[in-house]
Amino acid sequence: MLQVSNLSVARGGISLLHDVSFSVQPGQALVLRGANGIGKTSLLRCIAGLQQPISGTISGSETVAYAAHADGLKGQLSVLENLKFWSEVYGGPAPKSALAAYDLQELAQRSAANLSAGQKRRLGLARMLVTGCGLWVMDEPTVSLDAQNVALFRIVLQAHLQSGGAAVLTTHIDLDLSGENLDLTGYIATAQRSSSTFEEALE
């Protein structure tokens, strides 16, 4: 479903990750781990096609549903209208089941500006369902969710995996998924050394 080989990633001209390779099969979830600033978000943006890698290839992903730190909601639109828009853009399923999956039916007519942080995040996650995409790329999906809603997210994700979908995500909590973890610490780019040679030259 997704094949990443020898990928090198940079952000703002600074090399972050070097020579990352992994593959994700249908039904599998890959959790990326690593310290803050290691390059998890940049790697996900590469997979989502928002950013070009320095080298290496990404293949196998047709259209990708991407969930970023920001939920990309329009405050003036209602919960239902927000979902409907994304469902039409992707040509995905109707929002009804997505609303039910994240327990948002009662909020359907409320404008997104009046949602709490956790409710906004649930709406952002429900967006993944209406895209109808097989591969979900999610950046910290559980931020600002309480324990009950993290459990809800886990159920939705498991159902997605069981129906042949796949996911690549970053998270700092233990989701107890059947997927595997990839620790990015071993792939830190060593490009920072160029600055140390510069300092040596100064000395």
């Binding site: 928002l50 970023a68 990309g72 909601l73 790329v137």
Partner: peptide, 16 residues
């Protein structure tokens, strides 16, 4: 506005 609330990123990663 779309850039600030993140929806431009999401549009860019959509099939559009």
């Amino acid at each position: 506005l779309d850039y600030e609330d993140g929806s431009l990123d999401l549009l860019a990663s959509s099939p559009l």
